[in-house]
Design a protein around this nucleic acid. Structure first.
Lengths: 198, 198
DNA sequence: TGTACATCAGTGAACGCGCGTTCACTGATGTAC
DNA sequence: TGTACATCAGTGAACGCGCGTTCACTGATGTAC
């Protein structure tokens, strides 16, 4: 790793900042453990020496902030992308839920870190808005009887968050639930909380 | 702390085990940070030397397991106690939800630790059963139209877990939700997911 | 009843480790003359 | 066109710290004779 890296050309040293954040994300995703996010481990992963990080971040906390900001951007983009395919608002809402929960499952430690300390971060507001808009379109469509899409979007979000963090594929038998149809379970939750008809 | 402690009488050295677990719980609750759970910090908090822990636990992991087991017991007892007061099943279900979520808020770091690594631990099954029974009583009562109390209890649980970990009092303004009536929000979620009537 | 002894509930010092951070430095490269 | 120099993108060694764990020990106390 350290051997293969070639230094950035003069004037483009800022590229390393992006590489460092990417290395931190790869590290927490692969170890699936937020505790492995140390400054030295991130540097090793990025193929640089530990002090090099200080040219781009004041300290580890600032690096973590950048990781979180990038992660919220990714989550928003994943959900927004999933909502582009469907043609009706009910399917959009379902796609939002599935993609959101999938992100939580696939990046478990990172997702938990995103919501660990600060409650829901300001950066999650834009993703919340996607859900709210979808419910509003369902109401306009006649497929939701929600009287308050804003409040109901919050309920849906809480449910998505619960699925993303509580349920981990492979442990279902503990509750004698049999093989769980997770997409169906999430659809049920979203349908009831967003007051979908039919 | 170290000064005030007097050693256990001969034959009751096992008492220290309980004290160590209590110290670990106090530590994670007060710092609200699972990373502060180090063997040395726990020993300091318990007023003993670090090596003393090894008489009762093979290593830090075993101590953490004991902390988690005790915490799941506490959560179960909190929910069970809250369900003893009400006289109708709908109120029982509401009380279960409120007490569960309150536990998550009041012991935030510890609650997250409980569900961090292993998904929902086997120890949570008994608490799940409390919810399932309450829904079944609602059905028998005619106050729920649930066709599958077992599956719907899972949905309710996911919602409770989501509330317990996502929503932290004091940040509501971020989503322009105004002052949130959290008990009412939780009641809405439970009512819709458990298919309560009226 | 007195005393030697085994047992129990701990302690203090030490180890090697990875950590965040600091400091003086190095070597390539664009720029001024 | 050649060369001195400033700048940039990093590096290597070192620091003090808290950590988990090991080890030899200490001192009180119950028990056997």
């Amino acid at each position: 790793m350290r051997d293969t890296r070639t230094r950035n050309a003069r004037g483009s040293g800022a590229n390393l900042r992006t590489e460092i954040v990417a290395a931190a994300i790869a590290l927490v995703d692969e170890t699936n453990d937020a505790a492995s996010l140390t400054l030295r481990a991130i540097a090793r992963r990025a193929g640089i020496s530990a002090p090099s990080i200080y040219a781009h971040f004041a300290d580890l906390a600032e690096l973590t902030d950048a990781l979180l900001a990038e992660s919220f951007d990714q989550l928003h983009e994943v959900v927004a992308a999933a909502m582009r395919d469907p043609t009706d608002p009910v399917s959009e809402l379902a796609a939002a839920g599935q993609s959101y929960v999938r992100f939580g499952w696939e990046h478990s430690a990172r997702y938990r870190l995103m919501f660990a300390s600060s409650g829901y971060a300001p950066d999650s507001v834009s993703t919340f808005a996607l859900v709210e808009d979808a419910i509003a379109r369902c109401v306009a469509d006649g497929t939701s009887t929600s009287a308050d899409p804003h409040a109901d979007a919050f309920l849906v979000w809480v449910a998505m968050h619960g699925m993303a963090t509580l349920e981990k594929p492979g442990r279902a038998d503990l509750l004698r639930l049999g093989p769980l149809d997770r997409p169906a379970i999430l659809r049920s939750m979203v349908a009831r909380l967003a007051r979908l008809t039919g």
